[in-house]
Design a protein around this nucleic acid. Structure first.
Lengths: 178, 178
DNA sequence: ATTTAGGTACACAGACCTGTGTAACTAGTC
DNA sequence: GACTAGTTACACAGGTCTGTGTACCTAAAT
């Protein structure tokens, strides 16, 4: 049940926004009573936090070459952009909507961004890149930039542009790219 | 009067979000009656549109060297990030909050992003860059990426990272950078 | 068969929201 | 002094929202 609630909340929160979706709407969509929802989550805020926590997924380890993994990130982004259900980064959207006042939401957003940056950094270290820290940040910038651009323009080409830029940055750091 | 309303609406909408701020709050902040506000703007939606339209500013022409102008963009970003009143890109935030359902908001957001991309492109053309279109898109990605990252992390260093990346991309396109 | 855990239906409080209606007030202008 | 344009105070309609209270129901486990 808890899972059904979260699944539906995810769909509605992500597609329509946190404030735009009421708990009534979520309950009605599942076909349960609002009371049941409140029996599983003490408040809407708690539901929002759980929604974001569930969105915090880390890429599973891969044994493909690091450079390939990095570039594949942008291919995966392009596929997600092509879906009509893509509506930007849920963490960025949540911070944009709730403001930095909401401490717990902001914390999870920061953690997520940092975890992705570290994922990049580890791969870059494996590649022997000198300034892995700095380059990881720059790659993260490209990811978030293409997401923001696609959110407003709805243009998957943004992911390709980011990938091109990433290839230049990698090559400049001495990484051989396909 | 209209201007005082817009100034206050700007401050509140931008800092707290579109849905988080009611017309009552705006009127109270100025010290006017809600009726007066509605005498100047037929609806809250109209006020939101006017707020965004007022945020649509284009950089004034400069006779500094194009490469300098491009890089100065990132310095200016860094200064804005350092302000505690910076809360991301108002257009991206509006789209994130209102969803793509709101056509007029989305249009102005697209127009703004495109105008900045074209500003980059023109400078790149002046520099004789071959793929000015593509590089302009990539620079725009860096700008929006650093804005999104700063929104959640509150770290002006994101602007510096974007500038570093921009310098690499420019150099790679044959532009001499300081 | 009784207990127990959970779900349902439904009303409701209390807050907030947008937008309107109305009558009175205050300036400045003819 | 009379007229006009803009403003104010304030109530209100009608809607939405979060969260709670309560009594009933259902089904599984003991």
């Amino acid at each position: 049940m808890k899972d059904r609630i979260l699944t539906t909340a995810d769909k509605l929160f992500y597609l329509q926004g946190l404030r735009a979706v009421g708990v009534d709407t979520i309950a009605a969509e599942i076909g349960i009573s609002k009371r049941t929802l409140y029996n599983h989550f003490p408040s809407k805020d708690a539901l929002i936090s759980a929604y974001l926590a569930r969105r915090f997924v880390t890429p599973r380890p891969s044994d493909k070459p690091p450079a390939e993994q990095i570039l594949a990130t942008f291919d995966s982004l392009e596929r997600r952009f092509a879906s009509k259900d893509f509506r930007g980064c849920p963490f960025v959207n949540a911070v944009a909507e709730l403001g930095s006042a909401d401490r717990s939401v902001r914390k999870i957003a920061i953690d997520f961004k940092e975890s992705r940056r570290l994922w990049f950094r580890n791969l870059l270290v494996q590649l022997g890149v000198k300034d892995a820290e700095g380059l990881a940040t720059q790659l993260a910038l490209l990811v978030d930039g293409s997401i923001a651009q696609d959110l407003v323009r709805n243009d998957p080409a943004m992911a390709r542009a980011a990938k091109q830029a990433a290839m230049v940055l990698l090559a400049n750091a001495g990484v051989k790219v396909g």
